[in-house]
Amino acid sequence: MRILQLLAEKESTILSAWLDYVFSDFKPEAVRFLRGKDRFANPLGQGYSQGLQDIFVALRSEELAEVGAVIEYLMKLRAVQVELAPSQALAFLFELKKIIRQECRKEWSPELDQEWPELASRIDRLALQGFDHYMASRELLYQVRIRELKSGRHILTDHVKCPSALVREDLNRQKQAENDGQP
């Protein structure tokens, strides 16, 4: 398709605009650390820049390649960004459509209009995949938390009494039991 070719040509500008969009979710002053000339590198910035690139490359290939693992990792990152609502966390995948149209507006032709729905639906499919992974990650997060609770550590957080009150209660209960046991 002609549109895929165009995407390949415009890859760097689209990617850069896309990354900007993703990083706009961070506190403004953090953005400069996540990207910038030397790509101030760290697991977070690295995860995003590499992840977006992988997705984009898959998108512009003749056959939509399998990028489940990449999306999963990105969604794991999104899922622990507490400041994001789920809609915000996923928005960047849908936003790619707008970014592509914007970045390609000069080169746009009626011929591309015909190919657009196919590409848009590819993006939608990726986004839906993202939705699955986002939900799975949030669920996993709560599972992890539940496992912590189950393994006994909840004693620390969930009982609301001070130890001496507990001691007193225990003693009372025992006394009660003894009294009950007596004829």
């Binding site: 900007d20 990083f23 706009s24 506190k27 403004p28 002053e29 953005v31 400069r32 990207r35 910038g36 000339k37 507490v82 400041e83």
Partner: peptide
Amino acid sequence: SLMTGAIPAKDWMDTPAIFKPGN
């Protein structure tokens, strides 16, 4: 034009801490 990654953003002293569930 913060997006360019080259322009200074707000000074850290002027950025407030905001508490949300989870942080």
